[in-house]
């Protein structure tokens, strides 16, 4: 279904929620320059490719295996059909991470008010109620290069007061850890299925940056377990340009994989 009223007229734009999410993810890489864009999940992957095809042409994308790939091919492209420009084995990925030439968009099973992310475990880490994927590279990523998060199911269980196991490091934790942690720490955006968030507040707590057309600020507040900063003039997430929408629908994702990640 279509959900858009983002032109401010209330008119149905025919743009789906998943498409607003892709645009919001793409915008995270605005002005990124020649850095590795590492998206996790279909929606962020489409966002990174869309950014590369439009306003962020210099970003570097991997093939998901051990190479950098040329261009921004359709999301369903078979591995055998990708064109590769350089080797990028995992050991070299750490060189990139620790050099800071990367902006990752990770997923978060929980995220909290100061930007801590959890992908390790729900409950007591010693004997978890639910074992998750593990901290993976989140601790190192979050203190070495720009980091954003994608949360496809925004609820009071995912946007929590305090995460159970701090994997990706938020602002307050980094501050406490000192200059070793804060020097390159930069949580840029959180994109959920309901809206876009950042930490551009005096105390670096989470702020609503925009809400996706079809949701309301009240919906978002009700689905968030902590107090969000809500600017008086908060706007809807921007509309994709006609060129962006065409690239997304006809080039990058003609099979609408995006709609499996986020229902309208």
């Amino acid at each position: 279904m279509s959900a858009g009223t983002a032109d401010g007229t209330g008119a149905d734009t025919g743009i789906t929620r998943a498409e607003f999410c892709v645009i919001a993810c793409a915008d995270a890489w605005s002005g990124a320059g020649e850095v590795m864009a590492s998206p996790f999940g279909t929606i962020p992957a489409l966002g990174a490719r869309l950014a590369k095809l439009t306003f962020a042409p210099d970003v570097v994308l991997t093939d998901g295996e051990a190479a950098l790939m040329v261009g921004a091919p359709p999301i369903a492209t078979k591995a055998a059909d990708l064109i590769r420009e350089a080797a990028m084995p995992y050991r070299s990925v750490f060189d990139v991470v620790w050099s800071g030439r990367r902006h990752i968009m990770m997923m978060a099973s929980q995220i909290d008010r100061t930007g801590n992310q959890n992908i390790s475990a729900i409950g007591d880490h010693h004997r978890p109620k639910v074992q998750l994927v593990g901290v993976r590279g989140a601790p190192g990523n979050s203190v070495n290069h720009p980091t954003s998060y994608w949360v496809p199911d925004h609820t009071v269980r995912t946007f929590v007061e305090h995460v159970d196991v701090v994997s990706g490091v938020g602002y307050a934790r980094a501050e406490t850890a000192g200059p070793g942690a804060t020097r390159f720490h930069d949580i840029r955006r959180v994109v959920s299925n309901l809206g876009v968030f950042d930490f551009e507040t005096p105390d670096h707590t989470m702020r609503l940056r925009s809400f996706h057309p079809g949701t309301t600020v009240d919906d978002i507040v009700g689905a968030t377990a902590f107090a969000l900063t809500i600017p008086d003039d908060v706007a809807e997430t921007r509309l994709p340009t006609p060129e962006e929408l065409d690239l997304l629908r006809t080039v990058l994702d003609p099979g609408s994989l995006r709609d499996r990640d986020v229902k309208s």
């Binding site: 880490h125 901290v135 601790p139 203190v143 070495n144 490091v169 406490t176 070793g180 942690a181």
Partner: peptide, 13 residues
């Protein structure tokens, strides 16, 4: 030495 782990619960667990 590394920055990785600073501020995270890797150090508490």
């Amino acid at each position: 030495p590394t920055r990785a782990g600073l501020g995270s619960d890797v150090l508490t667990i």
